[in-house]
């Protein structure tokens, strides 16, 4: 067992406590059954069956090209924007099949928000970045409500105090970590139930990373979070459940402490101890 990971788990004692609570109130938010993804001829994801628990953080780990990002993008149908991508299997949100013809993909993405690997603020002001979603979905009727919603979202993302005097500045003028929190605020503003994060800290320095990790832990109170990460310490620190992917297969899933201290599968063991990956 990697010592850093052991430390990370020891350093996060509340993880154990909350796991105990979660075990009692555990409720499945999203279920996926036998998900297969093909990119043209390439079989990128094979028979993935996984439950995502409500108001907890599920970490997807695995070496590059293992399919974890592909899986994440299935959850809000972002793969629809790629011509050659084909998704089969059953994916449900609160028992509703999200690939059903009757589902409006635009509405679906409003309730399943996404934060990307590289911070991608729009070429607009900080305010307009956050107001973008509420405006296109008509969530607020007047300016005062919009102001309030933007402030709330920025507060939840822990950014408001840093930017409250310059909401008119371009979003790109912020630092990398601030930009990523702006993107989180932007996703929150639409009022999603699930937030998908695709390696949200991979382009950030350690301090900004720590800030985002704290934020993820806070957001867990209100949102279901699925996070793809390359850092096993990060997975150990922020998540309650962990799923390990390898070469398009879901190898192992379970409680985070169990995956990191007592993995059942040899490959998981090999990956988390750094033998490959």
């Amino acid at each position: 067992m990697d010592e850093n990971i052991a430390e990370a788990i020891v350093a996060a004692p509340e993880a154990d406590a909350s796991d105990a609570v979660d075990a009692e109130t555990f409720r499945v938010k999203m279920t996926t059954r036998n998900v297969n993804v093909h990119y043209a001829e390439k079989h990128a994801l094979r028979d993935v069956t996984l439950d995502i628990g409500e108001r907890e953080v599920t970490a997807l780990i695995g070496p590059s090209g293992c399919g974890k990002s592909t899986y994440l993008r299935c959850l809000n149908r972002m793969n629809d924007t790629i011509d050659i991508c084909r998704v089969t299997g059953r994916l449900e949100l609160d028992g509703q099949d999200i690939y059903d013809d009757s589902v409006d993909v635009v509405q679906l993405r409003a309730s399943i928000g996404m934060v990307f690997q590289k911070p991608n603020p729009f070429p607009k002001s900080i305010f307009d970045n956050v107001a973008y979603g509420p405006r296109i979905h008509g969530l607020v009727s007047d300016r005062a409500d919009l102001d309030q919603l933007v402030e709330q979202s920025l507060r939840k993302a822990g950014l408001f105090d840093e930017v409250k005097d310059r909401l008119g500045d371009p979003g790109t003028s912020l630092s990398g970590g601030q930009q990523q929190r702006l993107c989180i605020a932007r996703a929150i503003a639409v009022g999603p139930e699930v937030i998908l994060m695709d390696e949200p800290c991979s382009s950030l320095d350690p301090i900004a990373t720590a800030r985002i990790e704290e934020l993820i832990d806070e957001l867990r109170q209100n949102y279901t979070i699925v996070i793809v990460t390359h850092s096993m310490q990060q997975a150990a620190r922020v998540s309650q459940k962990t799923a390990f992917f390898h070469l398009g297969d879901l190898i192992e899933q379970g409680e985070t402490p169990q995956i990191f201290t007592n993995p059942r599968d040899e490959k998981t063991q090999g990956y988390i101890t750094g033998r490959f990956g």
């Binding site: 924007t81 990307f116 729009f122 973008y132 979603g133």
Partner: peptide, 20 residues
């Protein structure tokens, strides 16, 4: 990434083109 960000917020194609 900008288009993905907009689609990820539930914007349609023309909204994404016009506003982002």
């Amino acid at each position: 990434a900008l288009r993905d960000g907009s689609y990820g917020l539930g914007a349609t194609r023309s909204e994404t083109v016009r506003q982002v």
